[in-house]
Design a protein around this nucleic acid. Structure first.
Length: 154
DNA sequence: GCCAACGTTGGC
DNA sequence: GCCAACGTTGGC
């Protein structure tokens, strides 16, 4: 089983939106970056655990956890002309983009802010904290996972 | 709103 | 295949 961190803007889709989804489950779609796509398509497996990160908000940080309940499958929003994620280069016969389904697991009693993550030496290697990193899906080590859950007080 | 960093596009 | 221009991300 692997651990991941996934970013979402809470104005668009935050952990409360996942909590309120049917079966507390939602597709994680709209990822349009090849590096992230490869992880969604090739690596993320049912049962993997996810840190749900809130970005582009005040303050940004880890808001809770989720679980992958369906491994990578084609992101049909790419061939929906009505979707903001429409990409005419992706077709059902030759899908370019992928998504997974995630289910809500926990909302932290308090968000663990990005500032706090930066203070912890054990987390210094996280891609999230590297200058210029823009990946919206990234792997997390078990040690990092445990450290962040510790910071969240859970 | 700014801007650094990075990815993508397209002319050549 | 290079690289300048442009678009996007996301913290500040």
């Amino acid at each position: 089983m692997a651990y991941w961190l996934m970013k979402s803007e809470p104005d668009e889709f935050g952990i409360e939106d996942l909590y309120r989804s049917p079966q507390q489950t939602a597709p994680w779609d709209g990822v349009r970056n090849y590096q992230a796509r490869n992880m969604l398509r090739d690596q993320m497996q049912e049962g993997d655990l996810v840190l749900f990160y809130h970005s582009s908000c005040k303050p940004p940080g880890v808001a809770g956890t989720a679980r992958v309940v369906r491994a990578g499958y084609p992101d049909s929003s790419a061939w929906d002309p009505e979707s903001p994620y429409f990409d005419p280069k992706s077709t059902p016969d030759n899908p370019r983009w992928y998504r997974v389904d995630v289910q809500w697991c926990s909302t932290f009693p308090r968000l663990v802010p990005l500032d706090r993550l930066r203070e912890v030496p054990a987390l210094a290697g996280m891609p999230l904290l590297q200058k210029g990193n823009r990946l919206s899906v990234m792997p997390v080590t078990e040690e990092e996972w445990q450290t962040i859950l510790g910071l969240a007080g859970v």
